[in-house]
Design a binder for these strands. Structure first.
Lengths: 186, 186
DNA sequence: GTCTATATGGCGATAGAC
DNA sequence: GTCTATCGCCATATAGAC
């Protein structure tokens, strides 16, 4: 199944055939249909397993009594690590966002993201009381998410350096961007 | 051709058949092959046209003598507007980032994004001298990009309000997040 | 449970008339 | 330039033996 997840993550639903999945599973095509009624079911099971495997266990962060700023740093670092360690998760999530199937996105929101997002909302309202908590939480997620998403393109943009892809540098940048006053010249 | 762009943006390369494209173009399948040697060429032409249509004409912003902070606000607002006005562009870009074809991403970087990104780098180093310009520029793009990308999911998350999707509210949030000191409680 | 064999249909692409 | 007709292939899915 983990091979199926990987294939769907890399090539998308329409990019993977039952034949490929059968080979990856060391099974004949008919063998696949013994376990799943059709391709859609297989795909949805793959997504479900990939996402719930995470279980997004950031609970130790939320439960610690570290100061909010440290919690933010830990969260950003952990999220970056989860995404970098499991590119399949990142890619599958992007595919699901693109498909934008309302039913499946609602399941995702309720089952996978809801609790973590609530904690992130709390943290946001503590650290950034002058901003709407919802927008602030999305912004934090955006910074992590999109930095990774843009990396394949960024490698060809001016001023790019490989060190900008390291997890520590990204964490430091994102956290200080969020927390430190910018010294601006008007 | 704009119908082809729309189809590819919504369903991805593998999700659209030549037959669909033929119907959309009011042509027979063979008719399509009079103009394009194969499906790949048609797709690449669609991408090219969709992206260069933008030409990303933010030049008036860069050339103005407005203070840097105002330029930032104008840029964020304009980029949000471009993305919201042309969802096909946004979706097609996401598909291209997911495919991560090195050759095509390099073309994209060189032909479409390079000049605008250079301007954004300049602005970033003016406004945020304490941050690496590259990371800062990517962060600005990330905030715009991912807020939109996460909208379909965000609608099912706690604390969501429809007003958070308005272009003015998003602009205000992103700009003030970047420019204003956060009043944090340790 | 897993296989071979096959049904049925859509796919990308082409031939050749007009 | 645009069409109808068709090719060969691969897709999803099923039937039925073992």
């Amino acid at each position: 199944m983990s091979l199926a997840i990987s294939l769907f993550a890399k090539k998308g639903y329409n990019g993977v055939s039952i034949r490929e999945l059968a080979i990856a599973a060391n099974l004949s095509v008919a063998g696949i249909y013994h376990y799943f009624p059709d391709k859609q079911s297989l795909y949805q099971e793959a997504v479900k397993q990939c996402f719930s495997n995470k279980a997004f266990s950031f609970s130790s962060i939320w439960q610690s009594d570290a100061p909010p700023k440290d919690k933010l740093r830990l969260f950003v670092h952990s999220l970056l690590k989860v995404m970098l360690d499991d590119k399949d998760f990142h890619n599958l999530l992007q595919h699901e966002l693109l498909l934008a199937d309302e039913v499946r996105l609602k399941l995702l929101a309720d089952n996978i993201f809801r609790d973590e997002f609530n904690e992130l909302l709390k943290l946001s309202s503590q650290l950034f009381p002058q901003q709407p908590a919802y927008l602030m939480a999305i912004s934090i997620l955006s910074l992590v998410f999109s930095h990774l998403e843009l990396q394949p393109l960024g490698r060809f943009l001016p001023d790019y350096q490989t060190k900008y892809e390291t997890i520590d540098m990204l964490t430091e940048h994102i956290v200080s961007l969020l927390l430190e006053k910018s010294i601006t010249i008007d």
